Simulated assay, not measured.
Amino acid sequence: MPAITKPVWAHTWFANIWPIVAAIMFATFVAFGSGPADHTDVAPVVTASAFVYLGAAALQRRVAAWPMFFVSVIVITIGFLVPGIGPSWSSWAMVGVSGVLLGYGLIRGALRPLWGAPLQAAALAVFAAAAIAAVHVDATWAGLLVGAGLLAHTAWDINHHRTERVVASSMALFCAVLDTFLAVVVLAVTLA
């Protein structure tokens, strides 16, 4: 099988700049759209960060990360707009959808490589548990938990961007900037 090469435009500065700019714009909206964001506002993003990776791994398509991101935005938006369900519901909904995607992926052979669906499923369990716990604990601990979760996922993003595994490089870069930006905001609000 011939090696897959990137198109010429992918080697330009544009391929690395647009995800950064988009992430800063989106993170600014999330962090300051209705006042400074706190742990409750951002907790579902911790789950979403792992949800996107698991979805792409289960579908065995790196570019599937972008549609998965848009699904997570819709789920989180529903969690905030529908009275009575809240951010914890958003995390649980993404976990449920992930279970279906993981089942589909395993049927289609996504058990290999181990850094694909199996590792991403384990990561989702950890990140979702942190996000769900953050909604139910003291505000200071919750803010620290969400901030730490986002920073941990930043490291995850950087590793996946470097190795070019699981998600599109543009998504890994976008997510690294988004996670870092939101972590700083949440930790600043928590520690202020």
Rank of each mutant, 00 (worst) to 15 (best):
A93K: 05
P67F: 00
V42K: 04
S88K: 12
P113C: 05
I85A: 10
D41Q: 12
L182W: 08
R162K: 11
V71K: 00
A139T: 01
G105F: 05
A65H: 03
A123L: 12
T154M: 12
L182S: 00
I158M: 12
V30Q: 06
P113D: 01
H11S: 13
T12V: 00
G105W: 11
V63K: 13
F51D: 00
F70I: 01
L81K: 11
A93H: 01
F51C: 02
W13I: 15
A57P: 12
G149N: 01
S98C: 02
G79Y: 04
A152C: 11
W115K: 12
L187W: 11
W18Y: 14
A134C: 07
I132H: 10
P2M: 08
A188E: 05
R112N: 10
I20L: 02
G99F: 08
M94Y: 08
I24W: 06
A133F: 09
L111A: 14
P67H: 12
M1C: 10
S49R: 01
V30C: 05
Y104K: 06
A133H: 06
F69M: 05
T12M: 08
W89C: 05
A131P: 03
F70T: 09
H136T: 01
P67M: 14
V126Y: 09
V189K: 05
L145Q: 03
S49A: 13
E164I: 10
A142C: 10
V177G: 04
V97E: 01
F174K: 07
L145D: 03
A93D: 00
S49V: 09
L191T: 04
W141P: 09
G84T: 00
G105H: 08
S88N: 03
L187S: 02
